[in-house]
Amino acid sequence: MYYLNLVKEQAKLSFMSLAIYRANFVLMLMQSILNTTLGILCVEFIYIHVDSIAGWSQNEMIILYCTSMIVNQIYRGLINPNHLRFIESISSGSFDRMLIKPVSIIFQINTGSIDYSSLLSLIAPIIVLILKIGALDISISGLNVILFLAFLANAVILLTSFMMLLYSLAFKHIKVYGLTGIYFILMSMSEKPKEIFSCKEIMYAFIMLIPSIPLAYVPASLLLNKGSIPDMIAAAVSGILFFLISISAIKKGIRNYTSASS
């Protein structure tokens, strides 16, 4: 209940900040919608010249892309600003203030401010997703939707844990902004079907080591009745493992942490 109240207060403060910087909000919203639109256009332009890619039709590929966008925007809306604040706080010394607060450090690293423009820009990929599902000649059951939502949540947790694990390197190397490049690579890979990895070993490496496949491919394939039990199990295991490893990495980092300021 205590943490729920904290989340409510953080949401309120973020909303008040948004009310002050309205122009920035509108511009960031436009940029996110533009990103989604141009990505979808790229897929449409490719499909002018091909019928299918690895068994994925145009509408299915767009659904995959939109799923990736949904995971991306949820992470950017809820988690990413706080992760960037975390790595900044280590180099500036303000991480000390986070340590003395009577709140879980993992909670503080992952929550704090909300980027409402990223959350609002979820509307574009969700609408396109629904339209493309309607255009497909398949029946989507309640179970498909539940599995889709469950593995979407798993994808957000997995992405959060993976990035938290990477950013825990800030305890040792201080300036780790270059690691945000891995985030962009991960999202770029998640927009593509897993069939780009023709070798099974490489494919499993991209589930368990650099988890791009569980981010969008697994939820989208479950929605489209293309999913498989091994993929689901691998995605769930990957999510749990990265969650546990990232928490352990943060705790280890804190044990070795020395303040940059007095």
Binding site: V50, S52, A54, G55, F184, I185, S188, K192, E195, I196
Partner: peptide, 21 residues
């Protein structure tokens, strides 16, 4: 490393497009 991984992903995707075609 980052920029070349990005190019590599793009190329691998297009190899898939050509295999499918």
């Amino acid at each position: 490393v980052m920029s070349n991984i990005s190019i590599f992903i793009t190329i691998v995707f297009w190899l898939l497009v050509y295999r499918s075609n």
